[in-house]
């Protein structure tokens, strides 16, 4: 097989409790945000992915479909799946900075109030779960 080096090497944490397809989607999204993946980059083929990580090929298809519906990737017939030329990233660079700053401030306050890191994570998890429920 003379396939070229993959543009991204996926990882999978079966203990995380996060659905495997979601883990792949998040890794691509984060790679795009960090600039490690750029518009026009080809994502590894499903066959390549199943040699990188132990994963069901249907799950990889599912993740790629999700990336397409998010506007991050596009399928090109007979060629594969590519990062779109101007990938839509939902939070803007500036928005990210501001959100990060606010979160840092919040963490500072939480620490001052004696909340330990694990409890902060738990709190965030609860809030995220509740949001999911509202949106679904």
């Amino acid at each position: 097989m003379s396939e070229k080096q993959p543009s991204i090497h996926f990882r999978l944490d079966p203990r995380s409790g996060i659905a495997p397809y979601r883990q792949l989607v998040d890794q691509v999204r984060s790679a795009v945000e960090m600039g490690r993946l750029r518009g026009g980059d080809q994502l590894p083929s499903v066959r390549q992915v199943v040699t990188q990580v132990t994963i069901n090929p249907n799950t990889v298809h599912r993740a790629y479909r999700e990336l397409e519906s998010l506007g991050l990737a596009e399928g090109r017939l007979g060629l594969g799946t590519f990062i779109t030329e101007n990938p839509v990233i939902h939070t803007t660079e500036a928005g990210n900075v501001e959100l990060t700053r606010q979160l840092q401030l919040w963490v500072k306050r939480a620490r001052a109030a004696g909340i330990v890191d694990d409890d902060m994570l738990e709190l965030l998890r609860r809030i995220l779960n509740r949001d999911e429920r509202v949106s679904s």
Partner: peptide
């Protein structure tokens, strides 16, 4: 096994005690 599924679309029915495998390879 997953490569086989990817390349030939083979259906698989397997028994296992390893719950970690279920989430990653099964649907």
């Amino acid at each position: 096994l997953m490569r086989e599924v990817a390349e030939r679309g083979t259906s698989v029915v397997l028994s296992t005690h390893a719950l970690g495998d279920v989430g990653s390879i099964c649907d």
